[in-house]
Design a protein around this nucleic acid. Structure first.
Lengths: 157, 157
DNA sequence: AGCAAACGTTGGTCACACCAACAATTGGTA
DNA sequence: TACCAATTGTTGGTGTGACCAACGTTTGCT
């Protein structure tokens, strides 16, 4: 048997690379989020949460605007809204001024669910960042913001 | 039309959260990796690369050990190795001492492909981290390492 | 009036991650 | 030695997030 000692978890060439570290950090983060959604989210997932958040913050909106505003693909907006509607967390009606469009509105139950999810998700931020000091947390966040701001600049260019 | 101004890309409650920032950072990182693999990788993806890296570093190994060593599920190890084998980047033979097992070996062509991919992936580290100074890069990496090391501790606990 | 664009819906794919079931082989124990 | 549980590799499946194509209907512009 050629492998006569247990290998390290990750080949050395892979494990120190930033792209790998980012992916493992994301895996941990999304794993905790998925667990949180599963425990408290009544089958809701990230897409649902983002759409509820958008509706609460921006007010009634068309599906196309929701898609553009959240970055979620149109077909996924449709699918997630159908699920939210069946849970009575949103309502959809045809826009009388533009009959091609639906106007989507969050319901009071939707607002309530959003606040619950906020709490869950806030707790998960704590969990994800637990190993870091408060200063390190601010640092980590600032670095990611910088990474992403540069991308925003280049995509607007 | 209720939304009479273009909303920001992301609802405010979402956009400053570490889990969101991590996911966008990952999306950017994996997008660049996917583009790199597509341009230079002959249809190979992350799983393939990780398996080639493991074989090059650890030497011939059983599939089960490869799966344990890289964290890739058994069925995905099988699928990826089948693809690598069909490209003649690895060879598989039955272990004569343990006829339930295959021994997987990287081929010279596999080593060559791995080195090419190394170059591509190294370039992508540069791209991903481009907005940060060198000191910030070291910082970012150290923070992620700390986050992940704590997880390693808790999963060994 | 005609045509292109927009909208929402339906259907599809991909990558990564994970799980279930099965047949064959091996190792350990009674 | 026989039996049974564990291991191995294969085949098949699901979920999430992300993305794309095609279609019929409605709207806006020339």
């Amino acid at each position: 048997m050629p492998m006569d000692h247990p290998p390290s978890r990750t080949p050395a060439r892979v494990k120190d690379r930033p792209t790998w570290l980012i992916s493992r950090t994301f895996a941990r983060s999304s794993g905790l989020l998925a667990a949180g959604f599963e425990s408290y989210g009544r089958g809701l997932r990230s897409y649902h949460y983002r759409l509820l958040a958008a509706l609460d913050e921006w007010g009634p909106a068309s599906q196309a605007d929701l898609g553009r505003g959240t970055g979620i693909d149109r077909s996924d907006v449709t699918a997630a809204l159908s699920e939210l509607e069946s849970l009575r967390l949103v309502e959809r009606s045809v826009d009388p001024e533009h009959r091609r469009r639906n106007i989507v509105t969050i319901t009071p139950a939707g607002v309530e669910q959003l606040l619950e999810l906020d709490n869950v998700i806030d707790g998960i931020q704590e969990q994800v960042l637990k190993p870091l000091t408060h200063a390190q947390r601010r640092q980590f966040i600032a670095l990611m913001v910088k990474l992403l701001a540069a991308e925003d600049e280049s995509s607007k260019g």
